[in-house]
Design a protein around this nucleic acid. Structure first.
Lengths: 192, 192
DNA sequence: ACAATTATTAGACTGAAGTCCACATACCAA
DNA sequence: TTGGTATGTGGACTTCAGTCTAATAATTGT
């Protein structure tokens, strides 16, 4: 399923893909997502515009893949370190994610916006970005519950939605998303 | 501040404004926000395109004003009815908001997306749509706290962010936003 | 060597957003 | 009535996303 037989035919130019992703990342971080055009990325990569369309449907598809490809950015699992409380684990995980986001929060906002205009991109974004982080937090909260650090009548799925929702809500409304928010969230989840 | 002196000059045609808002609402509900062009709205309203730009900067500005103008839609305050628990009040308020949103959730998603591409629209959207609803919930939670229905160590502002965040997160990810979500949110906020 | 197949390229083309302009129109005040 | 001022109208123009096409290039199998 992954490797196609594909005998015959000119092979895709992998250097072109790499150049496009690199150019996209550079231009978006330099000028901001909205101010970079498809044509500009292709030109900077030294490639025809159609070559970009051969691989990605939209600028959002390209930027998403470029941001999350080899590097496991934003993907660090919260570890169950001995001696660290569940609350501290949650706070540390959120603080780490939020710090990374302060680097390119504008791009993430732009990708969320793009997802509202393109159902297939919304699905890809959910699968590659949203759901993994949601599951990390749900897992952490379930572990806290089995350890007795979170009351049995709390709902880990709903709490995870609260946590990520608070983050999206703040980010999309231009409000601060930083270590202070991580602390406040962890405090509210692990009340008492 | 509201009434301008404006002596001299041709007065703005209020019928044109009304026709533009009506046409925008009708077309957006018929075809969906993304599939309606500015030129189409102007044509349906029987006015020149420039007349639309004289009043609003973007389609989002026009649609926001059209949706929230005279009608107090989405604006019903949660009442402190005698005999109704705080939890039931919250659930009823959320269920009402979510029901309205099922009518035009797509448009709200499109407006949130537009806010990510236009800082001045983001500010207007926050002021007219986001903040009022956030404050309604915060007020309700503070009242619950003074009545002893919510523990003193809970943080009403953070909880309100949780609640609205959960709603945004679900909506923007294409997940259900309905009475069931209202129930789950109210249950998680008023634990025990 | 040659045919089949697929990728790349340059360019044309459409549709939409947004800006700009010249001219017509409506209102006010002197 | 006349001049000042601001809006309405139609159209030209630029930029960009997205689609399409014809020609060319690279690879495989015969």
């Amino acid at each position: 399923m992954t490797e196609k037989p594909a005998s015959g035919g000119r092979p895709p130019n992998e250097q072109a893909s790499a150049a496009l992703k690199a150019a996209a990342l550079r231009l978006v971080s330099e000028k901001g997502y909205a101010k970079v055009s498809i044509a500009e990325i292709a030109k900077a990569a030294g490639v025809a515009r159609q070559t970009l369309y051969n691989r990605w449907n939209t600028k959002a598809d390209l930027v998403l893949e470029a941001m999350f490809e080899e590097t496991g950015r934003y993907a660090a699992e919260p570890l169950d370190q001995a001696g660290e409380s569940c609350r501290a684990q949650l706070e540390a995980f959120l603080a780490q994610v939020f710090t990374h986001l302060s680097q390119d929060g504008d791009t993430v906002c732009a990708l969320i916006a793009a997802a509202q205009q393109d159902a297939s991109f919304r699905a890809a974004f959910f699968r590659r970005f949203v759901r993994p982080r949601e599951e990390m937090v749900t897992t952490l909260l379930r572990r806290a519950q089995t350890q007795g650090k979170l009351a049995q009548d709390r709902n880990p799925e709903m709490l995870s939605t609260f946590i990520h929702g608070a983050f999206w809500y703040r980010l999309l409304n231009g409000q601060p998303v930083n270590a202070g928010l991580a602390r406040d969230i962890a405090a509210e989840v692990f009340t008492r």
